[in-house]
């Protein structure tokens, strides 16, 4: 019961933000990128719920349009690493021997490669933007899934149902995807929840460094960076975008915890 509650609360929180992001134009009549230089750095009021930024843009509007960018990229960025990691993990543990040690050496190399160093270099290769972010998160992220699935497959491989499937002469592909996968995938799904948080954190950090989604698109990381020079007076400019990320992180953590409890039953 309690695990379901955690799961539903988390999903509800995330769903609410997703709805706000989708219906952003109906919720706010401001344009997230339109400047109003007569009304810069206003405090919170009825017209501007979270005030305006140094260029007179409505901060609340930018926050909810930012949710579109950060949520959409954060969610979609984990799909590729998930697929690559799960497939290579399956392959590595199933084949064993040279294949396994070759894949594991690659994994070790990627593990020793600091993520932000890789991400920053990629931004210079492909230019700032969504493409670089997705490539960076894919290159940095598949390793974890590969390791999780590999260790689960190594255990499952020796179990009777797999032996039985092999004895009946089923082809490898069928055993792997029909028998093995459903039994080894749960842990990686739970990890994917925290990985989405990590990828949103990466987008925000890159945005802060000026290497993420190009301005003037509303994005939480660049909003934090734009707000930093004003923290003594307009402290909310840098504070509120961070709280949005914390909110998303909290909802995904709750979903993850709920899933763990559910899968353990």
């Amino acid at each position: 019961m309690k695990s379901s509650k955690t799961l539903y609360v988390g999903a509800g929180m995330l769903g609410l933000l997703a709805l706000v992001a989708i219906f952003a134009p109906l919720i706010s009549h401001y344009d997230p990128t339109e400047q109003d230089l007569m009304n810069t750095l206003l405090g919170p009021s009825i017209h501007h719920w979270v005030g305006t930024d140094p260029l007179g843009r409505d901060v609340f509007t930018r926050l909810i349009y930012g949710a579109r960018v950060d949520l959409a990229i954060g969610l979609s960025a984990v799909i590729l690493p998930y697929i690559i990691g799960v497939c290579l993990g399956l392959l590595s543990a199933w084949k064993g021997g040279k294949t396994d040690s070759f894949i594991m050496r690659i994994v070790d190399t990627f593990l020793a490669f600091p993520f932000y160093v890789l991400a920053i270099a990629l931004v210079f290769i492909f230019g700032p933007g969504i493409k670089s972010i997705i490539v960076a998160i894919t290159l940095g992220g598949w390793v974890a899934y590969c390791r999780i699935v590999r260790s689960n497959v190594l255990v499952a491989k020796e179990q009777d149902y797999i032996h039985a499937a092999r004895l009946t002469g089923l082809p490898d592909r069928r055993i792997l995807f029909r028998h093995m996968l459903p039994n080894v995938i749960s842990q990686s799904i739970v990890f994917a929840m925290s990985d989405i948080v990590l990828s949103i954190l990466a987008i925000v950090s890159l945005g802060y460094l000026g290497l993420g989604v190009p301005v003037p698109t509303a994005e939480w990381g660049s909003m934090i960076q734009e707000g930093q020079p004003y923290i003594t007076q307009q402290w909310w400019l840098a504070t509120v975008p961070g709280l949005m990320v914390v909110y998303v992180g909290l909802s995904l953590s709750l979903i993850g915890d709920g899933l763990v409890a559910r899968l353990e039953r």
């Binding site: 954190l201 950090s205 934090i224 961070g242």
Partner: peptide, 11 residues
């Protein structure tokens, strides 16, 4: 776990 490091630094 959901706190961006840049934000923690600024705070």
């Amino acid at each position: 776990l959901g706190m961006p490091q840049v934000w923690v630094g600024v705070m």
